[in-house]
Design a protein around this nucleic acid. Structure first.
Lengths: 139, 139
DNA sequence: GGGTGATTGTAGCCATGGCTACGGATTAAA
DNA sequence: TTTAATCCGTAGCCATGGCTACAATCACCC
């Protein structure tokens, strides 16, 4: 066997994982800017519990993706594309989180699980989550 | 800043991702052995839509983790630890899949989303999934 | 036995995201 | 202004999991 079978819907790939990271970071940048006014590398390092070196390299990747703008030793800013992606990510994040709460999952656990789950929920499933939450909270 | 903040529950780490891969692989090996009697590297390559080289290296890692046994040019076998992990993984996988079905997600989408979600569901949330499925299918 | 095709191994490349170590830049305080 | 602390960049290491290219092994048939 030389080339992989293309028609297999099974695996999240490397690039999937990189996209998840991008979404997590732009979402975090938007939140931090909301809270503190600006977002520095060190803020992201704290948020994600990694060193500033790791953040720097991921931010560099986001710059090359056109999601973020930086100047040396300056705060990190989102581009328009970055803001849009952050908004979409936050929207999906919120739907998943409220869904887990509506299901009866404790807030703390729901927050953690949402982080892991959000990138793997298809639009179709997300719609079911919304429907369930709407019905459950209407009581 | 030099060392990362430890008390942040935010991120799936590299080792998390490696564990997910291990679970996916032992689960796949168990399934393939169930279906075909033995599991070869090429079967896993087809299943995960990657080349045999990638499979070989991941299998080598599973061997070093004590989950799998191999001899050169021979099929891949699970150790007792591997079988136990596969069983737990399949159990969780099934719960998530049935939950999505019970929620009204189409089978095909549910199968795909389960692949992504299963590794990020805490025991607490998993229990809620089970409860919901039980109630929904009791109708 | 010899050949052919499928399977597996090995070498070596890349991207991503972890890290330490160290040095430069910035900022605020003395 | 100098000094100290904080922040950021760079160099360079590692693990994981993608890949191509090529070699070796195995199984099977002639």
């Amino acid at each position: 066997m030389s080339s992989p079978n293309v028609s297999v819907p099974h695996r999240r790939t490397r690039s999937d994982h990189a996209s998840e990271t991008a979404e997590d970071y732009v979402e975090a940048i938007a939140e931090i800017v909301e809270e503190r006014g600006t977002c520095r590398v060190v803020d992201l390092a704290t948020r994600f519990a990694v060193t500033h070196v790791t953040v720097s390299r991921i931010v560099a990747r986001l710059v090359s993706l056109g999601l973020v703008e930086t100047e040396p030793y300056q705060p990190v800013r989102l581009t328009e594309a970055g803001r849009k992606l952050a908004k979409r990510s936050k929207h999906r994040h919120d739907i998943v989180y409220k869904f887990l709460l509506a299901l009866g999952v404790p807030a703390k656990t729901a927050a953690i699980d949402t982080e892991g789950i959000e990138h793997h929920v298809s639009p179709e499933t997300l719609k079911r989550f919304e429907d369930f939450t709407a019905r459950a909270t209407a009581d």
